[in-house]
Structures are given as structure tokens and as C-alpha cells.
Amino acid sequence: MLPIDPTKKISFTRHICDGDLVVVYERHDNMKAIKVCQGSVLQNRFGVFKHSDWIGKPFGSKVFSNKNGFVYLLAPTPELWTLVLSHRTQILYIADISFVIMYLEIVPGCMVLESGTGSGSLTTSLARAVAPTGHVYTFDFHEQRAASAREDFEKTGLSSLVTVGVRDIQGEGFPDEFSGLADSVFLDLPQPWLAIPSAGKMLKPDGVLCSFSPCIEQVQRACDSLRSNFTDIKTFEILLRTYEVREVKMDCSQGDEAKPGSILPRKRPQRAIEKGNEQDKLSSQTVMARPCSEAKGHTGYLTFARLKCLS
């Protein structure tokens, strides 16, 4: 997934090979990660796709099924992975993820601790941020979940950047061997206040901690426990509003049939363009945008704090 190996980097000359991980894009809300395997097929509502047809094509290609249905084959990125990974837990999405990476001040070479691993959505982005020389140590108390996460990192080629441990961080804290070595710590735990003292021990002075909690009561208790050793404590909520864009025909005619000022949405704007404007002389085409009517109203609160500098 990451260009750690320069030969795997996407380019005009890089083609899909046997064994590559590709993201099969049907629609923006329907994608799937697939390991390309000579002799294998993908079957979906568009028909049957032979993997052998994909090999040798560049990433970003449109490929066809036996019924002439099509999908696009994309190179995986942490953002796409977040959309296709198998949900073993509730996961973090791009708005929270990008903000966490920025606010934790993670740059190449950093050492980052995370708990819990969950489905590995954030972990994938953490790995990208610390690459090529840093490392992410992530812990989950659920043995099976940790194993699945490990398999995923193997699949996405991040194993050299991520180590998954099985450990109850709320109960036992982070392992002592990381004491004073972490640049940043991320907690997504039901009772973060139990892990905060340990997180404080792990961080370098001035290192940043982030705790993600869906409920304000968790935030309240986390902040209480942060106040003794941390400073610059801030809590945020970040959401995304998305917009839909369409070309609409604004009717300017004074005729009887058309009501003045009415907006006639066009489902297939390209047709209108191809036809030309000749018969639409009395109307104008305008591209308009409006917020999508559905959105995530809440994901979680992000609380950040900086370890006090005492030496």
C-alpha cells in the first residue's frame, strides 16, 4: 500500500501483477479489496471478472465482465482501505483520522503507541505517517482481533511498520520497555482514564496524547485524570459535510408551459451538453451544489493533551 518499496510505487509504467492488492471500485459507496490471483474470478452484480484480464493493466483501469459490466481497479491507499476493511469494531473515519495524525504531530521516524487496535483503520494511517523509519506499536486485549489485524497488515504490506500486541492496556498499562520513548499515544478505550497514567509514562516530555471517546462522560473523566501531568488539554469534535453537485436547467422562457423560476434537475447532464444548447436557447445550464441530506452527526470526541515538560 505504501511506496516503501519504490518498485511498487504507482506510476505510468506500473502494472497490476499477480498477487497485488487492488481496490475494486463499483461506486463511491461500493468498493472491495481483492488480492489478484491468476485463475481467480470476481463475481458481482455486473457479471464475472477474470483476474487474468486485470494482470498487466495499469492501476486506475476500467475492466469489463463477461456481461460487459465494468469496475475500476485502484491502488490501495489508507483512505480506500478504511472504506473496504472488514469491520470487527466501530472504526475511525477520515475526518477524525486526518485530524489525529496532524494533532499528534506524527512525522516520519516517530514512535507511536495505540490501544485498542480494533479493525486497524487508524493504525493504517499511523503507519503511513511514521514510515519509513518510525514504528507503531498497537495493542488490543482481544486475541482474535489482534490476529486478524496482523493478517490485514500483512496483506496491506505494513507489517514492517506495525507491531500488534495482545494486552489489556486499561488493566496493565503499556509495556515498561516503551517508557519515555513514545512521541505520541492514541487511546480508543471505554475507560481511557485508567490508561492515562501509563500513557504519561510512555511519552517523551512535550509528547502528545489523544483519547477518542464517543460519550461526553468519558471525556469528562479522561480530562480530570489528564490535568495532573498534562497541559494544553483540548477537546474537539470534527465532522464532514459533503456536497452533491448537479447541472440544472434554469428556465428563462415566459411561455405558458414553464413556470417561471422553476428548477428542472437533469439526471444525465452529459446528454444535455452533447445535444448542444440550440433547443435550450431560453434556458441556461448552471452547475449547482448543495449539502447531501444525510451525514454522520457524531463520531466521537477527540481529546488531546501534551505531557508537561518537567526536566
Binding site: C223, T235, L240, Y243
Partner: peptide
């Protein structure tokens, strides 16, 4: 291009204090 999306981030900060959040 595919996967096209226009998004607008919304960021809200909270005051978190005992009984005053």
C-alpha cells in the same frame, strides 16, 4: 476521475471542566 467528493470540515472545540462542560 472517480471517487469525487466535495467535503467541508466542521470543527468544534469544547470546554471540559467539572460540571461545566
Amino acid at each position: 476521475a472517480i471517487g469525487l467528493q466535495i467535503s467541508e470540515p466542521w470543527l468544534r472545540e469544547y470546554q471540559v471542566l467539572p460540571s461545566r462542560t
